[in-house]
């Protein structure tokens, strides 16, 4: 893609994650490639088990053993981070890459005041003393919209509502000013009324600081509102990657097409939502060839025997033998 001139903040190339099990080696992430530029938001969508969270965990180096990166490379601002030592990787986490988890009720340590959790993170990564860290903590809380931050700094997590807690989590993820934030389903556990606020907050903070975001979600609405680019994952592989407008309005991969037809937002006006027949295959028995072929309306013999190549289509990339139904 020649139009990419800016150097990406995060560049993932042919990333594979493997989990050795008794039934053999599982590959929850397979040959995945994507870039995120400074200040941009990449939405990663897919069904449960498509490998979205696994990808996020691989990038920040928090894969639970025995899962491990088995191939490819991850570059952060040009520097490889997938082969760093434990201690070097720890210094990248929090400082260079922040992470926001799904459930704000369980992401905060219940026994420590939020202020202490902020200052310990700040002191870990920034060259400041305790007083400055305290000031920064208050500023960080004010920035995410916690009212009376200076008074609430000694409050415990259970004294906040779910939405407020997610704001605290965002403050924690951003307090060391990382260049990339991985948000793993940041609004799934929240009230619908609060979701939009949290997304808007995340978007505003990252635009102000030029922070890139990898937004993992299965909510197409959130993607439509927030993301610049979107990566659709299916069974650990990239199905489609492209600018959000293109992917949502004129998807090229049959899976994305099915996904859009089954989303209320995109299927506006239709009486009944359509559905994709069948279910995503389990990692233990992936079909030969293209993993999507058993559910694909346009599958042909070739799809059953050979994995689909990733080709340029619709202003982005798609992994299909027959993009838009035509033979490529």
């Amino acid at each position: 893609m020649a139009k990419t001139v800016k150097k990406p903040v995060l560049s993932v190339k042919n990333l594979s994650v493997e989990i050795p099990t008794r039934q053999g080696i599982l590959t929850p992430v397979d040959q995945l490639s994507f870039d995120i530029e400074q200040g941009k938001i990449l939405g990663v969508v897919g069904e449960s088990g498509a490998g979205k969270s696994m990808t996020g965990n691989a990038v920040i180096g928090l894969l639970d053993p025995p899962a491990h990166i088995s191939g490819g490379e991850i570059r952060l601002k040009g520097k490889r981070i997938d082969n760093l030592e434990r201690e070097a990787l720890r210094k990248v986490r929090g400082k260079e890459i922040g992470m926001v988890f799904q459930d704000p009720l369980t992401s905060l340590n219940p026994l420590l005041p939020i202020g202490e959790q902020l200052t310990e993170t700040i002191l870990e990564h920034l060259p400041v003393n305790k007083n400055e860290a305290q000031e920064r903590a208050i500023a960080a809380l004010e920035e995410v919209g916690i009212p009376a931050a200076a008074q609430r700094i000694n409050s415990y997590p259970h004294e906040f509502s779910g939405g407020m807690r997610q704001r605290v989590v965002i403050a924690l993820a951003l307090c060391a000013e990382p260049s990339l934030v991985i948000a793993d389903e940041p609004t799934t556990a929240l009230d619908v009324s609060v979701q939009a606020q949290i997304i808007a907050l995340l978007k505003r903070l990252c635009r102000e600081r030029g922070t890139a975001i990898m937004l993992i979600t299965h909510d197409m609405g959130v993607i439509a509102e927030t993301a610049d680019e979107v990566a659709v994952m299916y069974a650990g592989r990239l199905a489609e990657l492209g600018p959000v407008r293109n992917v949502l309005t004129s998807p090229t991969h049959p899976y994305t097409q099915g996904l859009m037809a089954s989303t209320p937002l995109a299927a506006k006006g239709k009486k009944r939502l359509s559905q994709i027949p069948g279910a995503m295959p389990r990692l233990t028995d992936l079909p030969f060839g293209c993993a999507f072929h058993p559910r694909c309306p346009i599958a042909k013999d070739k799809c059953r025997s050979d994995p689909a190549p990733t080709i340029e289509a619709g202003g982005g990339k798609a992994a299909c033998w027959y993009v838009n139904g035509e033979k490529s």
């Binding site: 340590n109 420590l112 993170t121 924690l172 060391a176």
Partner: peptide, 22 residues
Amino acid sequence: RQDYIRFARARGLKDKSVYFRH
């Protein structure tokens, strides 16, 4: 196994702090 331990690690805290403090 709790989320706040994962989050503590994701914030780049030292092992010592993750194990004993959290």
